[in-house]
Simulated scan of single mutants.
Amino acid sequence: MMERGYTAFEAFLAPLSEAQLTESGVSGDWSLKDILVHLATDKGALLRFLKKCCASLLRVALIIWHYLSEGRSLPIS
């Protein structure tokens, strides 16, 4: 599904010239290219953040599993 979205997006961008992509005014002074770069950058930051969250949750799950596998109770008040 995501691949189809990228394919459709690329098809939308394909006929646009460099001048059309860089013309300001699409949103304030921003060009379409400015917006795309911004979204790509934010997407990367979001993915890094989600990976860190997942890694942290995995560590917590492993700690809980370790305590429980030893028959100990969790040190939670």
Rank of each mutant, 00 (worst) to 15 (best):
L74Y: 09
V37F: 13
V37Y: 14
L50K: 00
L16A: 13
F9S: 06
E18A: 06
L16C: 08
I35A: 14
A45F: 04
I35M: 14
H66I: 09
A11V: 12
I76A: 03
Y6V: 06
A45D: 12
L68D: 01
H66N: 04
E10F: 04
V26K: 10
D29G: 03
A14R: 09
F12A: 10
T7H: 14
G5F: 10
M2C: 13
T7R: 13
E70F: 13
T7G: 01
S69M: 11
K52M: 02
F9W: 13
R48M: 02
I64F: 05
D34N: 04
C54L: 07
Y6A: 00
L13K: 03
K52S: 08
K51Y: 04
L57Y: 03
L62A: 03
V60D: 08
I63L: 09
L39E: 09
E23Q: 09
L47F: 00
L68R: 15
E70C: 08
A11Y: 11
L16G: 07
A11E: 15
A40N: 06
G25T: 00
L74S: 07
L32E: 05
G5R: 06
E23R: 09
S69W: 12
M2T: 15
V60Y: 15
R72G: 06
A61V: 05
S73Q: 14
R48K: 08
A19C: 09
H38C: 12
S56Q: 15
P75W: 05
S77T: 10
L57N: 10
L74P: 02
Y67P: 12
L74V: 04
S56F: 09
S73A: 15
I63C: 12
S77R: 08
L57S: 02
S24H: 07
A11F: 15
P15F: 02
G71H: 10
C54K: 12
T41Q: 10
C53I: 14
L39V: 05
A55W: 01
I64A: 01
V26A: 04
F12C: 12
R48T: 02
T7A: 10
I63F: 13
A55C: 08
L62M: 12
G71L: 03
P15L: 03
A14C: 11
Y6L: 02
G71R: 11
L36V: 09
F12L: 14
E18Y: 04
L68N: 06
F49R: 00
E23L: 15
S27L: 14
L47H: 00
K52W: 01
W30H: 10
C54V: 10
T41S: 14
S17V: 12
C53F: 01
L16D: 02
L74G: 05
S17A: 09
L46K: 03
M1W: 07
L13E: 02
L68V: 05
I63V: 07
A55R: 03
D34P: 01
L50V: 10
F12N: 05
G5V: 10
A14Y: 11
